[in-house]
Each structure stands twice: as C-alpha cells, then as structure tokens.
C-alpha cells in the first residue's frame, strides 16, 4: 500500500479546518492542521506535507502572504505546492493577486472562498497532478 498523501490545512477558522479535515480524511488523505501563520513553519518541518492549503488573510499581522514568502524562500520547502485561499476578492478594493507576489510559483494555485468540499478536493488533486508532471 502506497503512502497516503499528506495535506497541511492552514486557517484560523476552526470550522473550516474541522470540516475539511473530515472530508479530506474520508477521501483518503492524511491531514495535518495549523491555526495560525506562526505555527506553519514548525508544522511543515514536523509533518512534511505534500501540499499546503493556506488561507490568505488569517490575522491582521499574520497573513498567508508572509507564510508563503517564508516557505518559498526556504530551499528545502520551496517546492511544496501551495493552494492559497482567500475570502476577500478584489471587489473590496484590496488587491490580493498572486501576480503581485514575486514568490508565487506556477506550481501553486489560488482559489476563492467559499469553496465546497468537492471543489477543494478537485483543486488539490489538480495541483498534485501538475506537480507530479513538473
């Protein structure tokens, strides 16, 4: 039996994590969780996930951008694909676009919340496929 794919879910919304952890586990993934940006690095080191689902705007001083930058700047972890999620689109006048961020890799993806469990699994699988080829 092959090793399960491990996903790290990062979000400050406990319900988002609880729900998607259950859903992902039911779909055959192994799931680790982090509730704040500052927990991510330790979790990544410890859990060695195959993919990270990262919420963009977790807290005022602790955004997903900072986490993504730190990961992409690290030679060991820069290749872990990131699925960045945000609940805040450009319609609010705040720009959260991956194009603005130089660290963004083409192996990564970006999705708007809310995101149904099926959609999340679909995006995770697509991203994993893309990275297998790359």
């Amino acid at each position: 039996m092959s090793k399960k794919t491990k996903i790290l879910l990062v979000d400050n919304d406990v319900d988002f994590i609880d729900l998607n952890k259950t859903v992902l586990e039911n779909s055959g993934f192994e799931v680790a969780v982090a509730y704040a940006g500052r927990e991510v690095m330790d979790k990544v080191k410890f859990e060695k996930p195959d993919l990270i689902v990262l919420d963009l705007m977790m807290e005022k001083h602790d955004t997903g951008f900072g986490v993504a930058r730190a990961l992409k700047a690290d030679p060991v972890y820069k290749d872990i694909p990131i699925l960045m999620l945000t609940a805040v689109g450009s319609e609010t006048g705040m720009d959260f676009s991956q194009e603005l961020d130089g660290y963004w890799m083409k192996t990564d993806d970006y999705a708007n919340k809310p995101l149904s469990p099926e959609e999340l699994i679909k995006r995770i699988n697509e991203l994993l496929e893309r990275n297998k080829k790359a």
């Binding site: 319900d15 988002f16 729900l19 259950t22 039911n26 609940a87 609010t92 006048g93 809310p114």
Partner: peptide, 28 residues
C-alpha cells in the same frame, strides 16, 4: 470593508460547508 467582508463570509462559508457535507455525505 475588506475586513467586514471577510468576517461575514467566514461564518457563512462554514455553515455552507457543513450543510453541503451533510447533504452530500462527504463527511462519511
């Protein structure tokens, strides 16, 4: 406005997620 949007969306998407999981059986 961005913060309000975020704060309003978070509970709605959580509720929506739970309901979807319930209706589709996605949570086992």
């Amino acid at each position: 406005v961005a913060m309000v949007t975020h704060e309003l969306r978070a509970p709605v998407s959580a509720i929506e997620g739970y309901l979807t999981a319930f209706l589709t059986g996605a949570a086992g």
